[in-house]
């Protein structure tokens, strides 16, 4: 290598911006994220009453895992995350395909579908609690008109978790749809035209062109809604408070109940467990979703 080539290489590696540009971000990140994370790691190892904290090692974790309904909470959390993200992918994709085709009032329908995303979760939860009331709720009254005896949406232990999940999907599918619309309109028209000349039907167009080429959007939707589902708390709390019994408890609601009862160290330990659970499930998932595809 010649002497001239070495500086040229160095030039290439040099970043566009000076190093200290990252300082503001670093400060914000440390104050708002790193410090609380390490603090909660520490407090999860203490008996903590807000005024003083005594170091007790892993006792909190041991106790957290002895919680009688914790296992059900963990299972519920995973079921909830899988159901909500799965439905958001399917419904979001279907709506996006519909809203990118030539239909009337497209722009209006797009805003209608996105609207629930903007409404407060607690408000949505309270509204649907009323709508889903087993006898006086509008949903079951409407079903009764057709002679169908509606189920006890939120009072049936087998159903409560899924009812909340459905409301979550209703509220969140607008975001998934918007992400899919962005993904679909980015697919070049030429692909569809080439497929048309090759004689593809609409279904084949969808299977061979739309589906594979919208994979980045699918990855985003799955990741976002899966993490959201694992952390879910507000909707559950607004609608069932984990009930009936512990039938719809998730890790987050179990943690909150311990916090309410004044076990701060214990609930912090629960948060650490939730954090690890999310990391363990989501990291491999995103690696799988974003694996290299030959192109790019």
């Amino acid at each position: 290598m010649t002497a001239a080539a070495a500086p040229a290489l160095k030039m290439q590696r040099r970043s566009l911006y000076p190093g200290w540009f990252y300082l503001p971000a670093a400060v914000v990140y440390s104050v708002l994220f790193l410090a609380p994370t390490f603090a909660s790691l520490y407090f999860s190892l203490t008996r903590w009453t807000l005024f003083d904290a005594t170091f007790i090692g892993f006792d909190n974790f041991a106790q957290f895992f002895r919680e009688p309904f914790l296992i059900q909470g963990l299972v519920n959390t995973v079921i909830y995350a899988v159901v909500t993200s799965g439905l958001k992918v399917v419904i979001g994709m279907a709506l996006a395909v519909m809203l990118t085709s030539q239909i009337m009032a497209r722009g209006y329908l797009r805003s209608v579908i996105f609207f629930p995303v903007l409404v407060s979760t607690i408000g949505v939860g309270m509204t649907f609690t009323v709508l889903m009331h087993p006898t006086q709720g509008m949903i079951n009254q409407a079903l009764a008109l057709f002679g169908i005896a509606g189920p006890g949406w939120l009072v049936d232990p087998k159903l409560a978790l899924f009812s909340v999940a459905l409301v979550d999907v209703w509220k969140g599918v607008g975001l998934a749809t918007v992400i899919y619309i962005a993904g679909l309109v980015a697919i070049p028209k030429d692909y569809y035209e080439a497929a048309r000349i090759d004689g593809a039907t609409r279904l084949q167009n969808f299977i061979y062109v739309t589906l594979p080429l919208s994979r980045p959007a699918t990855a985003t939707v799955i990741t976002l809604s899966f993490i959201g589902g694992l952390r879910t708390f507000d909707l559950i709390w607004a609608m069932t408070k984990g009930g009936p019994g512990f039938a719809s408890d998730t890790v987050a609601s179990v943690i909150y109940k311990q916090y309410q009862a004044g076990f701060y160290g214990l609930s912090t330990a629960g948060n650490v467990v939730l954090f690890i659970l999310i990391a363990v499930l989501v990291v491999p998932l995103t690696m799988f979703l974003n694996r290299k595809q030959g192109h790019e």
Partner: peptide, 13 residues
């Protein structure tokens, strides 16, 4: 007929 597009329109996947 068969058509060759300016963008080639090859499916990347």
């Amino acid at each position: 007929i068969a058509m060759v597009f300016q963008s080639y329109a090859l499916y990347p996947h």
